[in-house]
């Protein structure tokens, strides 16, 4: 069913992955799945969710700000609000855009106003997300639209997430055709980790996107319209973006579509372990002609994954 969000027609990525048909197939229990977004936070003003498409306090839980060590994960960059909107902006509210996932979202701030984090904030973010999901006896999908070098600490954190049944979906990175960042590159070692690359509307790998043998799948990552804070942040100043809604590109924008799809799969089939959720996504992806280092198993197909 076509949602009534006025900007939905501009969300080419949702059409590309057959989101509308997928929504018709979703009849599961979304209450037992948490999608944790580890990023630069979410639009928050005076301690309250402030974006009209991301302001449902029953869905969006404000987790820790691990940059400033407080409980206010307000986004001062814009990246996190954009990523969160792609995955889970409120749908059918006659406002802005539509998100793929309408269940619960935990927002944890691990990137600062320059969009940088560290292996320490990554590890702390994973720990906080696992604890939150455990307290609620929920499945946990972790979206990490970031990355960097391999490290013992990062790997320890991934191991902890895996041992606790979580699925980690990570952006492959924007290394201009270079190697895949970590933690995404752990996808070849752990069947509970996914490395997500980006494609444009012609299903080609954009020049900025990373590539490599660890690639799991790709999703739309160019010219992606989503939410931005309704106040000025780094992304408005540095990249001349508008407040509230604008387009960004990157494997960061591709990963949340995969995370949201994983959450939908888990809500429909709650008995699946994390590795099988990944398997459902990769097995249902539409192959793309070319190297598997560019596209992995191909473009995600939400309808097929939920059938």
């Amino acid at each position: 069913m076509m949602p009534n969000d006025p900007l939905f027609p501009e969300q080419w990525g949702l059409k590309e992955i057959n989101a509308e048909k997928a929504w018709d197939l979703c009849n599961g229990n979304a209450d037992k799945v948490i999608l944790a977004v580890l990023d630069s936070g979410i639009a928050v003003e005076a301690g309250k969710l402030s974006h009209p498409d991301l302001n449902d306090a029953d869905r969006f839980f404000l987790g820790r700000d691990l940059i400033n060590h407080d409980d206010d994960p307000s986004d001062d960059h814009g990246h996190g609000t954009h990523v969160t909107g792609i995955a889970s902006a409120t749908r059918n509210n006659k406002t802005g855009i539509a998100g793929l996932w309408l269940g619960q979202v935990l927002v944890i701030k691990v990137f600062d106003s320059k969009n940088n984090g560290s292996s320490e904030t990554f590890k702390d973010g994973i720990t906080a997300a696992v604890r939150f999901a455990k307290e609620r006896s929920s499945h946990l999908v972790i979206n990490y639209s970031g990355g960097g070098p391999d490290s013992n600490l990062k790997k320890t954190a991934v191991q902890y997430a895996v041992e606790n049944g979580a699925l980690l979906v990570a952006a492959a990175g924007n290394n201009d055709g270079g190697v895949i960042d970590y933690p995404a590159a752990y996808a070849s070692e752990y069947s509970q980790v996914m490395a997500v690359g980006a494609v444009d509307s012609e299903r080609k790998r954009p020049s900025f996107a990373s590539r490599g043998p660890q690639m799991s799948v790709v999703a739309p990552g160019v010219d992606i319209l989503s939410t931005l804070p309704n106040y000025y942040t780094t992304v408005n100043q540095a990249e001349k973006k508008q407040t509230k809604y604008d387009r960004l590109q990157g494997t960061s924008q591709a990963a949340p579509l995969v995370s949201a799809l994983a959450a939908l799969i888990w809500s429909k089939w709650p008995d699946l372990p994390a590795a099988q959720v990944r398997e459902k996504i990769t097995a249902s992806a539409d192959p793309i002609t070319g190297s598997s280092e560019d596209f992995g198993h191909g473009m995600i197909n939400a309808e097929k994954a939920l059938t």
């Binding site: 990137f111 292996s119 490290s151």
Partner: peptide, 13 residues
């Protein structure tokens, strides 16, 4: 000691 290493910096992508 299991490991000692720098606190590596990640970036949003």
């Amino acid at each position: 000691v299991q490991f000692a290493e720098p606190n590596f910096v990640d970036s949003g992508s």
